[in-house]
Design a protein around this nucleic acid. Structure first.
Lengths: 230, 230
DNA sequence: TCAAAAGTGTTATGAGTACACCCATGC
DNA sequence: GCATGGGTGTACTCATAACACTTTTGA
């Protein structure tokens, strides 16, 4: 069975909006690459590239991310497909954008493939981006903000063990407002998806209890339709 | 400036999951076409087709819908992009799916283009669908159900003037559960986006007040971050 | 006068929010 | 002993949810 289409075809790319935390867990960063090829050579852009003919879109994102930045994701979901006919000077290029989250421990940026370099950029001092990537980034940020209200997104950004203050800071960064410590703790603990490791972390002051995320219990509650609004 | 890519390219289509109400406003239907061409000739499928090189994705959906079914939408948004390499026997075809809503008054299905026929199907007795369209339809249904909790989706399915009982029935259909009449009315009226037309509709029993949707006021409240959970 | 859908308020419960002080450690 | 962040409980407000009867019309 063979069907042939001879008319011109669009190209298809994937691009990833990947967020991660700074080491001090106090600011949110986005992963950008410096383009090594035309067009927009020397500009900063979202990591991504052309899909292969035999790979799924999700696989293409992970591959491109691995090739260009060596970053592995703790979370990924499809964001939106951008198809404006003029969004790419090379011609008709449709791009499916993904939202990704990475833990700090997994971030070891390397040189590779089409990218001249790859760096975590602070969201408050971004460079001009190639193509329509500013628009894509904005959509990614909106999605992150709306996700955080219903799902324990913060956990995907933190290391395996973390303190409740760490977690609260992540939520405050993403939501862009301060939260009450007592209310926050009561709320997140009431979900029953956080378990103390028994360990503590001491840095200069009173040691803080470390917690870990109980993924099985989370999946169970999700199936029961439980929301996790903070 | 010219960049040429000679490797094989995927095709790109759009498909639409379009919901509408039956005349009696008591059941939710989905718009399907009967395929007139191979592959899956004679099967039922979501309306859609190949995008043109110079048109935006949104425009492509509306065009295909117009060509195949003559249905105009009161609401449309992008749903998800399906890119499994084996989803289409013709080869690599990536499809961006859209969610659409149509008012009953706008529904006048016609013959045209690739479709042998176009019909509103009840959701509880669907035929086997072509390609991965069952999966796409399921994603559309999920999106509709999650949207209904935050946005006055019901209004996009009803005619310009409607009774509160109409509106409640729409919500009950989409949510799949019964709602309390008094609570529902208090809630939807409290948003302040419904205005009585002054008219009533009488059919056999006590006449019901007709309402219309105040779109300007709705946009205003949305900008203020107001949610519309029912 | 009866059948059928339209329309209307009150109460109880639970969630969200605001708020201030003591505790454990390093220096 | 003091500076610093860790850790805890109560009271108020507001939204949700449960619940039953009267009104208006056509037949």
């Amino acid at each position: 069975m063979s069907y042939s289409y001879e008319y011109p075809k669009a190209d298809h790319t994937v691009d990833a909006v990947v967020f991660g935390l700074d080491q001090d867990a106090v600011s949110l960063k986005v992963l950008l690459i410096e383009r090594g090829l035309e067009p927009f050579r020397g500009y900063w852009a979202l990591p991504g590239g052309f899909i292969h003919m035999d790979e799924d879109l999700d696989a293409a994102v992970l591959r491109e991310l691995e090739e260009e930045t060596n970053v592995k994701l703790s979370f990924v979901e499809q964001l939106y497909t951008f198809g404006n006919p003029n969004r790419d000077p090379r011609g008709r290029v449709i791009s499916t954008a993904y939202l990704g989250l990475a833990r700090p421990s997994h971030v070891t940026v390397k040189r590779g493939s089409d990218a001249a370099s790859a760096v975590w950029w602070s969201l408050d001092k971004l460079p001009e981006l190639a193509f329509d990537h500013s628009e894509i980034l904005e959509v990614g940020m909106q999605r992150l903000r709306s996700k955080v209200r219903w799902q324990p997104v913060g956990i995907e950004l933190l290391p395996d063990a973390f303190t409740l203050t760490d977690l609260q800071q992540v939520y405050e960064i993403i939501l862009g407002r301060e939260l009450d410590k007592r209310n926050f703790r009561r709320k997140v603990l009431s979900f029953g998806v956080l378990a103390p490791t028994g360990e503590t972390r001491y840095e200069r002051h009173r040691p803080a209890r470390l917690y870990q995320f109980d993924k099985d219990r989370y999946q169970l509650l999700r199936k029961q339709g439980i929301d996790f609004e903070v």
